[in-house]
Design a protein around this nucleic acid. Structure first.
Length: 515
DNA sequence: CCTCAAGTAG
């Protein structure tokens, strides 16, 4: 619902009142939903009061909707306390209510608290359902704990729930992010065998992975093929490709796709606007970026935290660090909730322009305010300390990082290795180098395809051949064999396999005709 | 009319 439409709804409600028609609870619930989507929580709460004032009791939908609204804003505590409110009104929380709270808990309070809620749910004799499991799978995937995610799926089956489209898409995405393409394709294959149709989510996930791997041609061709086979390309598909082309320095292609998307009548969301604004700012096309920002506002869309972060980043990128802080402060006044990404962007901006002291002050402020920091934050500071030759301080930060259970990655190691080498401490540099190699084997090279290219050529070639011949079964058999042997294939072999898995989808128009 | 899956930012 857009802002404009919501005021329409308001008018209609008033009209109803004037005509002596009193809105029922459903009418109010829809309004609550609309306000929550706009993140106008105060207004949403007012509607709840209105319900009560009209001698009605908010129902489970009213509560769940408003809880979700609260959770999305990070107000988990308030959301949870609403559960007591509803219980006192004898509106009993159901699995949907709990799922909403559990998801919010995972996001803002971490998995330990979330699992406590799952136990609480069970204690209240509300049984976890498929969605509960999917939520747990999602958060394990987000943490990169793919084994744990797999256990949840197994447990889900044990509990009598079959993995669904959500489960598979989540797992596929998780494996793609973890760099385990083999497992990702196994999941895709399993999905097909279990009779679950791939959908636009699945396609978009793969397109994203290909874009990240800088395989833009493959990504683009996949979307063309998918469209031909009846898949619907949506705003996310376009947004993903646009991001990919920008990252690949193909600005014109990105802009062309934006136009193509618009011509097709596909309406971009804030996220896609953010992508194009960020891309344009990155290539210093500030005027065009501003145009897009205005367009976003004209369409009645609300800029979000990412929009702000992207603009702050844009200022830093063009060297206007002061402006970035001016903008940041103004946005904070306007209820912008800065996050760890904001912090990292500002730190990087400061460091890049030599303002190290300010950077460390900002970092300390962040820590004092108990705002979360992450490995990127530390890497930013460690890198700058290493460049400055302040190795001792860099190592202090590494210890601090360890204390906070933040894992070192290739950024951490490359900074340290570089500094040690530069200081002539070759032996230590080698030691860290080997740590880099063992702890992040899939992060060594910028180009994963190169790494995958070192895989077994026989398997890769044969699988590719089978794929071109349409011998899907043979290809899969070889693929499984290679998996068992722990042999990795080159990226084109994975691509071929994936292509075969993208089976023809019934044309959507036919499907809707038969309805 | 309520819950879960994709894309933004180092």
């Amino acid at each position: 619902m857009h802002k404009g439409q919501l005021s329409k709804v308001r008018e209609i409600l008033l009209e109803m009142k004037d005509n002596g028609v009193s809105p029922n609870r459903n009418t109010y619930n829809i309004l609550v939903h609309g306000y929550c989507k706009l993140r106008w929580l105060k207004e949403a709460a007012e509607v709840v009061e209105l319900i009560k004032a009209n001698d009605m009791v908010p129902d489970i939908w009213t509560y769940t909707t408003i809880m979700r609204g609260l959770c999305e804003e990070g107000k988990v505590k308030e959301a949870i306390s609403l559960r007591d409110d509803m219980e006192s009104l004898r509106v009993m929380p159901d699995e949907v209510t709990y799922n909403t709270l559990i998801d919010g808990c995972f996001q803002w309070r971490g998995s330990v608290e979330a699992f406590k809620l799952v136990e609480k749910m069970k204690g209240k004799r509300v049984k976890p359902n498929a969605v509960t499991h999917n939520i747990m799978v999602k958060w394990y995937c987000k943490e990169g704990k793919m084994d744990e995610a797999g256990y949840v799926v197994a447990k889900m089956v044990e509990s009598g729930f079959l993995p669904d489209c959500f489960t598979y898409n989540t797992m596929i995405n998780g494996y793609c992010k973890a760099g385990n393409l083999g497992e990702a394709f196994m999941m895709k294959d399993e999905m097909g065998r279990k009779g679950i149709k791939m959908d636009t989510f699945t396609v978009n996930t793969i397109v994203h992975k290909l874009c990240v791997e800088k395989l833009l041609k493959e990504a683009y061709e996949l979307t063309v093929k998918a469209a031909k086979r009846g898949y619907i390309l949506d705003e996310v598909t376009y947004g993903t490709l646009i991001m990919g082309y920008f990252k690949n320095d193909q600005t014109n292609k990105a802009l062309k796709l934006w136009d193509e998307m618009k011509e097709k009548g596909i309406i971009p969301s804030v996220v896609t606007y953010n992508t194009i604004i960020g891309g344009l700012l990155h290539f210093l096309k500030t005027d065009q970026a501003v145009d897009k920002l205005n367009e976003l506002l004209d369409k009645g869309l609300a800029p979000d935290e990412a929009t702000c972060n992207i603009i702050i980043h844009g200022f830093c990128w063009e060297g206007a660090v002061e402006n970035s802080f001016l903008f940041y402060n103004r946005m904070v006044e306007n209820s912008f909730k800065s996050d760890v990404i904001t912090c990292n962007i500002l730190l990087r901006g400061l460091c890049k322009h030599g303002m190290f002291e300010k950077a460390f002050n900002l970092f300390n402020t962040w820590i004092i305010k108990c705002k979360p920091v992450d490995a990127v934050t530390y890497n930013t500071l460690i890198s700058v300390l290493c460049k400055e030759g302040k190795l001792d301080e860099a190592f202090d930060l590494i210890i601090e990082m360890e204390k906070k259970k933040l894992e070192r990655d290739r950024y951490t190691y490359t900074a340290i290795v570089g500094a040690l080498t530069h200081a002539g401490r070759t032996e230590e540099a080698n030691k860290f180098m080997s740590k880099l190699l063992e702890s992040c084997p899939n992060m060594i090279s910028e180009d994963t395809s190169q790494m995958l290219g070192s895989g077994d050529m026989d398997y890769s070639e044969q699988i590719s051949n089978f794929c071109t011949q349409g011998k899907y079964k043979e290809a899969m058999k070889l693929f499984q064999e290679s998996e068992q042997k722990g042999v990795s294939l080159n990226i084109s072999a994975y691509f071929m396999l994936m292509d075969v898995l993208l089976k023809r989808r019934k044309s959507i128009s036919k499907e809707s005709l038969s309805d």
